[in-house]
């Protein structure tokens, strides 16, 4: 890049074009999806995608909500809630000594945990499938909790270690003098002060768990035990070529996360900052 100093700013034109372009790129698939949900298959075939629907026909939504999407939704909520509680607790436990105490194995253990971030889940998929079959957990949502905790743990520990390292040591020392033991200091000082870091993880890991596909596909089988990402798969079979119905299911399944994001976006960025800057 050569620097040309002109008063006329070509950079702002380029910026404007890029911004507009990316709006279009992001929105077209969504417009396509939402337009589809308001039509039926016949209208879609006859008039094409971008023709305005004749009337606001919400019958696709009625059909989805009166159908069996609710148990997928419930399964997803349960798996996410249970996983998050265990995940956050275990991550905070591990992050505490790793961020605050000096001991010989500190660095190697931290390195091991961080290295697990790059392990492809597919190298573990078959053995975990076998384990699930062996323990009788196969085809139940509980088979998903273990792998979900394990695969979200490395990034969570990583972010929490960075976060806890920034909490002033004096607070802990004061508690130490007041007779708080090591465990007391964790519960009374470190855990409450890590709340901003934890709430980032709720969002970040929450989205990951909500959308997870590979384990859910492999470890569950009957539709009663499956999560929302697989609902799409199943509706796909049920409605075969009914594109508007499938698009409606898609839209309904992503809506909760969009709503959560709108309210929490600054938290998410704040928390990534902890990991991103030093990472």
């Amino acid at each position: 890049m050569t620097k040309t100093k002109k008063r006329f700013k070509p950079s702002s034109v380029i910026t404007a074009i890029l911004v507009a372009f990316w709006f279009v790129v992001c929105l077209i698939p969504f417009v396509f999806m939402i337009m589809c949900t308001l039509k039926n298959q016949k209208q879609l075939m006859k008039f094409g995608v971008f023709s305005l629907p004749k009337s606001f026909d919400l019958s696709n939504y009625v059909e989805v909500f009166t159908g069996n999407i609710w148990h997928y939704f419930l399964n997803s909520v349960i798996v996410m809630a249970v996983t998050l509680v265990i995940l956050l607790l275990f991550s905070a436990f591990a992050a505490y000594p790793l961020s605050r105490w000096k001991f010989k194995l500190n660095k190697p253990i931290y390195a091991l945990v961080v290295a697990c971030m790059s392990v492809p889940i597919h190298v573990t998929l078959l053995p975990i499938f076998m384990m699930a079959v062996g323990t009788g957990l196969y085809d139940s949502i509980w088979a998903l909790v273990g792998p979900y905790v394990a695969f979200n743990l490395p990034i969570s520990v990583f972010i929490l270690v960075t976060f806890m390292a920034s909490i002033p040591k004096e607070l802990e020392e004061a508690a130490d003098i007041d007779g708080c033991g090591r465990y007391g200091r964790f519960w009374k000082i470190m855990l409450p002060l890590s709340k901003p870091g934890l709430s980032t993880l709720v969002i970040y890991d929450g989205v990951n768990i909500w959308n997870e596909f590979s384990f859910a596909l492999t470890l569950t089988q009957t539709s009663a035990n499956r999560t929302l990402p697989l609902a799409v798969n199943e509706f796909q079979g049920q409605y075969s070529m009914n594109i508007p119905m499938i698009m409606t299911v898609l839209f309904v399944s992503i809506l909760p996360m969009i709503i959560v994001y709108i309210f929490t976006k600054d938290k998410l960025i704040e928390g990534m900052m902890a990991g991103a800057v030093k990472g």
Partner: peptide, 24 residues
């Protein structure tokens, strides 16, 4: 204390990441 705090995480990683890699 170190062992107590690290055990749950290491156990989960051991069972669901390291053991499966070896098993593969």
């Amino acid at each position: 204390a170190i062992a107590v705090f690290l055990a749950p995480a290491l156990l989960v990683i051991g069972i669901f990441i390291i053991y499966p890699i070896i098993q593969s």
